[in-house]
Every structure is written in structure tokens, then in C-alpha cells.
């Protein structure tokens, strides 16, 4: 799969609009998690708008199409914007984010079209994605399962149960991506609970591991996913260590854990939006 410069530009435009949606939703709700959402935007835009083979409409079983599972559910504004912009529900739902009566709950729930599993309590998504990948094997369904996880989330022990399980059961139709931004709520992961050499850890668990240091560069992101896809079907699960910057795209939010779970005020929103061109039309 070759990707033209024109196509990259279009995807970057989608990412800009998604970032606008994220800050506007979080600002409107006066709470939420912009930092990680902005950091993972390029990965999810690449998946949903370029990589994943998706069927029109939504059915829970998703037979014959690629599936995505979000484990770090707090990046819900990103997930909701992506799902809405790719047609799962109208953009008119976005103003309801985190508000009473909205389908867009603080953390993702299965009541939202496009969401196949609730997440928010961390560390469960890898196991869930493995289960869905096994179901695909039982159904002789050759499509893939993608998942996204925070790096701080790897401090939850269940991830390592799942990391043992997947190679043992040859779950080789799974691409798990770690959002490697080095930040968590209380500070840098190195200071809070050092993750050590993640590549060596996953390799020791018998995973295929690919590192991508430019996780906010659209072409690099697409290329690493294509590389990961080429590694599927060979008996081992695949892990992408995607280095991103928390808060990417908005200068005063970038690279700091301080915007993990804080909403911008009116003035900050205006500064943020000035840095993000409106490309697909605001909701």
C-alpha cells in the first residue's frame, strides 16, 4: 500500500479537525482528558481513515471487518470524534460529551455505535482484544484486531497476564499499540513507576515489537502500521511502541502531564483553536 503526499495531507487535515473536536468537547464539558487524546490522534486517524477494513454501519460482532479496542478509555473525546467523523453517529452528538442524558459518557460504553467494549478502568483492553482476535480465528475470519493502550496503563498487572497468553495461544491477528508518551497523571512514568525497557520486555514475552519514534508524524504512523500488518499471521502477536507527545498540536499542552485531565478555559481554547485549522467543519 503506497500513500501519496496528497493522501497524507488529507489525513493530517482530518487530524486537525479531530483535535479541534477534542478541545472543544473537553472545554464544553469543563472536564475530560485532552492530553493523551491529542497525542494518540494521528494513530487513530491513520487506523480509521486509512488502514482498517471497515464495513458500513455497525454491528457488535464485526465479522469480516477489522476491529479496534480502546483500552485507555480516558481518551474518550478522541475516540468519539473519530467514530463520529467516520460515520458511526452524527457529529451533533459531540456537544453532549460528559453531559446528562448523552450517549457520550465520560468513558466509552457499548451504548455508543462503534464501541464494542466499555473501558476506563485500566488494564483490561489487551485481554479483550485477544478474546476478540480468538473469536475471529474460530470464525475463520482473516481480518485483524487493533488495540491501543497507555504506557502508564502497563503498570496494571493484567497486561502482563495477557502478554503471556497471546504468544502462547499464537494470537497473531492482533496489533497492540502502546501510546508511549512517558507521562501519567502524577508525572513522568520514569518517576512514578519506571517501565524499564519495554521493547525488551515484550520481546521476552515472545511478541513481535516495532518501535516508532515519530508517533505524531502521519506518514511514519501509517508506515509503522503497515509494517506491523506485514508481521501478522506468523504465529506471534505484534506490538507497536509508538512514541507520542501528550497534548500534541497545541503548543502550551505539548509534552507535559499537566494536561492529562484538565479542561482549557475560554482563553486557552481560543489559543488552541487558532493553532488547529478547521478542515471538515466544526460540529
Amino acid at each position: 500500500m503506497s500513500v501519496s503526499d496528497q493522501e497524507i495531507k488529507q489525513l493530517e487535515e482530518v487530524a486537525s479537525q479531530v483535535r479541534r473536536d477534542i478541545v472543544r468537547m473537553v472545554h464544553s464539558a469543563t472536564c475530560g482528558h485532552p492530553g493523551g487524546s491529542l497525542g494518540c490522534t494521528d494513530y487513530l486517524v491513520a487506523l480509521y481513515f486509512k488502514i482498517m477494513n471497515r464495513k458500513p454501519g455497525f454491528d457488535m460482532d464485526g465479522i469480516g471487518e477489522d476491529l479496534f479496542f480502546l483500552s485507555n478509555g480516558h481518551v474518550s473525546p478522541l475516540f468519539y470524534s473519530i467514530l463520529s467523523r467516520s460515520g458511526y453517529f452524527p457529529t451533533s452528538e459531540m456537544p453532549g460529551f460528559r453531559k446528562l442524558g448523552s450517549i457520550l459518557q465520560g468513558h466509552p460504553t457499548t451504548h455508543v455505535p462503534g464501541v464494542r467494549m466499555a473501558s476506563g478502568s485500566l488494564g483490561q483492553g489487551l485481554s479483550v482484544a485477544i478474546g476478540a482476535a480468538l473469536a475471529k480465528k474460530y470464525n475463520n475470519d482473516s481480518s485483524l484486531v487493533f488495540s491501543l493502550h497507555g504506557d502508564g496503563e502497563l503498570q496494571e498487572g493484567q497486561n502482563w497476564e495477557a502478554a503471556l497468553f497471546a504468544p502462547h495461544h499464537k494470537v497473531d491477528n492482533l496489533i497492540a499499540c502502546i501510546d508511549y508518551n512517558g507521562q501519567q497523571i502524577d508525572g513522568p512514568t520514569e518517576k512514578i513507576m519506571s517501565l524499564g525497557n519495554l521493547k525488551a520486555k515484550f520481546e521476552a514475552f515472545n511478541w513481535e515489537v516495532i518501535e516508532e519514534p515519530k508517533g505524531n508524524d502521519m506518514r511514519s504512523v501509517i508506515e509503522v502500521i503497515l509494517k506491523a500488518k506485514a508481521l501478522t499471521g506468523k504465529g506471534r502477536p505484534v506490538c507497536i511502541l509508538l512514541t507520542t507527545q501528550m497534548g500534541f498540536g497545541i503548543d502550551f499542552m505539548m509534552g507535559s502531564h499537566k494536561w492529562h485531565g484538565v479542561a482549557p478555559n475560554d482563553e486557552q481554547l481560543a489559543i488552541a483553536l487558532a493553532q488547529l485549522p478547521e478542515t471538515l467543519g466544526d460540529y
Binding site: 467494549m117 479483550v128 480468538l134 474460530y138 497468553f165
Partner: peptide
Amino acid sequence: SVAAGLTI
């Protein structure tokens, strides 16, 4: 959680 995923 694997069981939950299998239902999909």
C-alpha cells in the same frame, strides 16, 4: 476479559 472479547 478474554471471555468478554470472545463474545464479539
